[in-house]
Design a protein around this nucleic acid. Structure first.
Lengths: 153, 153
DNA sequence: GGAAATTAGATGCATATGCATTGATGTGGG
DNA sequence: CCCACATCAATGCATATGCATCTAATTTCC
């Protein structure tokens, strides 16, 4: 049987929800205000740029970004329409495909970064010392790691 | 000009997004698996129960839950249709209204709690000592407080 | 080698969200 | 008193999301 969380855990949970919500909406707002696409697009562009010229399989993107399959499928749709990524056939598996970043996509990612970075600094950096950021990272890392462990179960 | 975040800040940001996403989806999944409504409904029910019999103004709910106005309006719609809350006229201001929890709503909140609590324990409590939960709460509190401060600006 | 099961990705349909606007009421200044 | 303006809440419309299902290709296992 599952145990019950104690008060401090509940408070930490509530703060986790609130802090992320506030931080994320601040960043999304900043991007929108600058006439840029949503944050998810940045993440895709970054993944694809890291993946190199060959591109990346959609299902890999799915795992990297913690998104649902249909969600990735449609995200790629939109980004392809915007000319930021392109789909290519994947020779070694007829079902599959490769998604690659275009030059426009690279330019977009570069253009988004200053705004994104500034917003992160405002939402997070500004409020924490390096020590504190490190501690936060470490604590959140435990939660993330815990989930990864349960995935296997 | 806004400064740039350092690496550790960026890592903390990324972890904040990931940890919250994982924790929230785990909780939503647990509720759904138990045939219960989404988490937002719980939050509304809790707020309303705290507000007492008189109920609460929608705009107050809006601020308490960090939701958009139209979002609250529709949330109340759905919950009213489900018989968990009711809208009443607010005599002192003809534009306004009061939203109050019904008995069914109270029962629903009570029924949701064990599942919710169990899921919080699994998603957060399980992975942190009380000390760590406290530290996490404190660090996240800084971020939340920071946002509140900027709201005024 | 071939039927059954699995995997990759797309999509129809219902529901939810965001944005802008509306309608209705309330408030403040001249 | 009345007009301009602010506030509360709802809603039309476009877009996004979730769920279930579908098609196509691949793998498994007999």
């Amino acid at each position: 049987m599952r145990g019950k969380p104690d008060d401090i855990t509940i408070r930490a949970w509530a703060r986790l929800m609130a802090a992320q919500h506030l931080a994320l909406s601040a960043v999304e707002r900043a991007l929108k205000a600058a006439g840029l696409p949503p944050l998810a697009w940045y993440d895709v562009l970054l993944e694809l740029e890291r993946a190199g010229g060959a591109g990346m399989r959609p299902f890999a993107l799915e795992r990297a970004m913690l998104l649902a399959q249909y969600s990735v499928s449609r995200l790629i749709d939109r980004m392809e329409r915007a000319g930021l990524v392109e789909r290519r056939d994947y020779a070694r598996d007829g079902r599959g495909q490769l998604v690659a970043i275009t030059d426009r996509g690279k330019a977009m990612r570069r253009g988004m970064w200053p705004v994104y970075a500034g917003a992160i600094e405002q939402a997070v950096g500004r409020h924490l010392s390096a020590q504190q950021a490190g501690a936060l990272d470490e604590l959140l890392g435990r939660l993330v790691a815990g989930h990864r462990a349960e995935e296997v179960e």
